[in-house]
Design a protein around this nucleic acid. Structure first.
Lengths: 256, 256
DNA sequence: CACGGGCGCG
DNA sequence: CGCGCCCGTG
């Protein structure tokens, strides 16, 4: 029996919004430590990994490990039925055939409850390799989104080059080319607005604009995002959550 | 070699926004006195004329006269890549094949740079005839925009009649008709909010609503706009800039 | 269905 | 000036 309660339905809504364009159906793996999700996108180019720790819920119990197979389009429809500020409870019985989604407003005078049918999804278990990253860039998530959006008007690829001095995003297309250079910055008053670079060696990757733009749907989940790079390895784009994270992996394009 | 720096990217963004719906491709004529543009709209009904004087730039140099042929749709894409408050630098080398557009934020920790390919555009040179105008009306640009927008719901034509007593905008359509009459007003505290009429003789012109509405995209560039009228001559709609102007000319519809 | 732009509020 | 909400367009 699973019961997980979030104080803000918006958290879960945003997560599902950020994932649903990449993945149609997937398992939410529930255990007593929390809820996790790992899935390749439909075209097997990128990978998404969600972790919601038990202590990120205001109430949580899960008596037995269980995989809840959900269609994310259907889940989105259900999640629209609640207000962002509502409390959200996810509930499943032993051997459930459906997930119960409950919304309660903070005044506790409105309760709505939906049951969403579960699907059987064969779990190709995904081993995510541990990578030693050459660079970790932390920047405001809105800034990263802005760069990806701007460059999407120019090219299907974005190159990220990182040195100690800064990080440079660049693209090349038919109408011209462009680059954005960010220098590390402190911003003592707004730590979220800082750009930080931790680097063991310079690194450069070229990535699909379309996928990066997709990852940016998670922007609303966190004021900052971190990009972890290692040559010829998938980039890791991580949005930290209050207790957990939403991670996206994307293999680089090969240099010709 | 051209180098022009504007303290506010928004100035150039708004100019291009106001022009791009009328003109697809055009030359920006750069000389040591500044940057100018003259172009007929695609259907050869209206004419747009921009002048940005050199002293309107915080830095300006142009060693040799040069015409930079640009596709305004592509230019718009590039200009969207900067923030309104960014500093904007336009740069071109001798015999350039591209225009460099650089944005820098005021904190100087973000720099972005785009190269936009240039086009060869054969310059049909436009002689703009000097006209002796019978009336010059100066009014708040937002007021003019409001009138054009309101009347666009009623008719494809707007008639502007001007006498010493005031200016009357009117339109007639299937659902009814309408008019707005403005009397000259002082507004000592807000000189921009004044309506002023200078007139040698009464004048009346009927004009295409669609084009006037298009000109109104320049509203954000200036708090006031002036309309210069002479019977059976094109109207001149002028938005003054800090150092220069953006002018639109539109031939009147003929009385039947 | 999703994205971008405009308007209003803090 | 930035953020969030609403509307219109592709």
């Amino acid at each position: 029996m699973l019961e997980g309660k979030l104080e803000q339905a918006s958290l879960f809504k945003k997560i599902v919004d950020a994932v649903k364009e990449l993945v149609q159906d997937c398992n939410f793996d529930c255990s007593d430590s929390g809820i996790a999700l790992q899935a390749m996108d439909t075209s097997h180019v990128s990978l998404v990994s969600l972790l919601l720790n038990a202590d990120g819920f205001s109430e949580y119990r899960c008596d037995r490990n269980i995989a809840l197979g959900l269609n994310l389009t259907s889940l989105t429809k259900i999640l629209r039925c609640g207000n962002n500020e509502d409390m959200l409870t996810l509930e499943a019985q032993e051997n459930p055939d459906s997930l119960t989604v409950r919304f309660e407003n903070t005044q506790q005078d409105r309760m709505s409850e939906y049951a969403l049918k579960l699907m059987d999804i064969d779990q190709e278990h995904l081993g995510i390799p541990e990578t030693e990253y050459a660079a970790t860039i932390t920047l405001p998530s809105a800034e990263f989104q802005r760069i990806c959006r701007d460059m999407s008007a120019i090219s299907e690829s974005i190159t990220i080059e990182c040195t100690k001095a800064g990080v440079k995003f660049s693209c090349e297309g038919d109408i011209g080319n462009g680059s954005v250079t960010l220098k590390p910055s402190a911003s003592a008053d707004h730590p979220e607005a800082a750009t930080k670079i931790e680097l063991s060696e310079p690194v450069s990757l070229t990535l699909s604009t379309k996928y990066l733009l997709n990852f940016c749907k998670a922007t609303g989940l966190s004021p900052s995002v971190s990009l972890k790079l290692a040559d010829e390895n998938p980039i890791l784009v991580e949005y930290p959550l209050a207790s957990g994270h939403l991670r996206f992996y994307l293999a680089p394009k090969l240099d010709e």
